[in-house]
Computed example of a mutant assay.
Amino acid sequence: MPRLSAEDRKAQIIAQVLRLASEIGPDRMSTTDVARAVGISQPAVFRHFPTKGDLWLAVAENVAASLRERWKEAAGQALGPQSRLKGLIGAQLLAVAERPALPSLLFSRELTVDNPPLRKVFDHLLASFQSQLADSVTGMQTEGILRPDMAARDAAVLLTSTMQGVAIRWTLGNRCFDLVEEGRRLIDVQLTLMSVQARTLP
């Protein structure tokens, strides 16, 4: 079997970290588990990532790059602000469905306590996503779809919270329902409640 390049080996390690984090949880996963899954020694893992914190940071940066690419593609295919908003949300839900470790990682000790640089990556990622949602909400308000007396930033936070809530429910429920379908359904409910038509109801 040909020897992998350093970059290919790093990518392989990151992929196994995400798989193991999904299966046993990020806080229970050890570098020994990672080495065994990849088929290398534990010291070999540390040759590529000097500390476990460095490994998690590389995972976060990999996830962030992938999500930003998905958002860019979704936005590029949109025909207007409503299409853009729904495309961004659909892309995010699909990314979580394909990488089910993400909800667990967001509430792990590694993220919330032990690794501030990791927290920073995800904080910036969330801020970027909410900013794009807010821009789409503003466009929908301009087109008369959503009520104008609502702060676009507040709407973006509410939509993001809905997505996070359904992702947590999906994780705790052993992924027993279609995350993308359920997430889109609940987002449609939220958008209906935010609509101009809902504002005019008695």
Rank of each mutant, 00 (worst) to 15 (best):
V121Y: 07
V121T: 09
F122K: 06
F122V: 06
D123N: 12
D123Y: 07
D123S: 14
D123R: 12
D123V: 08
H124C: 06
H124E: 12
H124K: 09
H124F: 07
L125G: 05
L125M: 10
L125S: 08
L125F: 02
L125K: 01
L126K: 05
L126F: 01
L126W: 03
L126R: 13
A127Q: 04
A127Y: 00
A127H: 00
A127V: 08
S128H: 09
F129L: 11
F129I: 11
F129D: 02
F129Y: 14
Q130D: 11
Q130S: 11
Q130Y: 04
Q130K: 15
S131K: 15
S131Y: 10
S131F: 11
Q132N: 08
Q132G: 06
L133S: 02
L133N: 04
A134P: 03
A134I: 04
A134T: 03
D135K: 14
D135R: 13
D135T: 15
D135Y: 06
S136L: 07
S136C: 14
S136E: 03
S136H: 05
S136V: 03
V137R: 01
V137I: 15
V137N: 02
T138P: 00
T138A: 09
T138E: 10
T138W: 00
G139C: 08
G139N: 04
G139A: 04
G139R: 05
M140Y: 01
M140R: 02
Q141D: 05
Q141W: 06
Q141M: 10
Q141G: 06
Q141V: 10
Q141L: 07
T142K: 13
T142G: 11
T142M: 10
T142Y: 08
T142C: 08
E143I: 00
E143G: 07
G144Q: 09
G144D: 12
G144P: 06
I145K: 13
I145L: 15
I145F: 11
I145T: 14
R147M: 09
R147F: 12
R147Y: 14
R147T: 14
R147G: 05
P148K: 15
P148W: 08
P148H: 11
P148S: 13
M150G: 00
M150L: 12
A151Y: 06
A151C: 05
A151M: 09
A151W: 06
A152M: 02
A152V: 01
A152Q: 01
A152E: 01
A152I: 01
A152D: 01
A152K: 01
R153V: 14
R153A: 15
R153T: 12
D154T: 15
D154I: 11
D154A: 13
A155E: 02
A155W: 01
A155T: 03
A155N: 00
A156G: 06
A156T: 07
A156H: 04
A156V: 08
V157I: 15
V157F: 14
L158P: 06
L158E: 14
L158G: 12
L158Y: 13
L159F: 07
T160I: 04
T160V: 05
T160W: 13
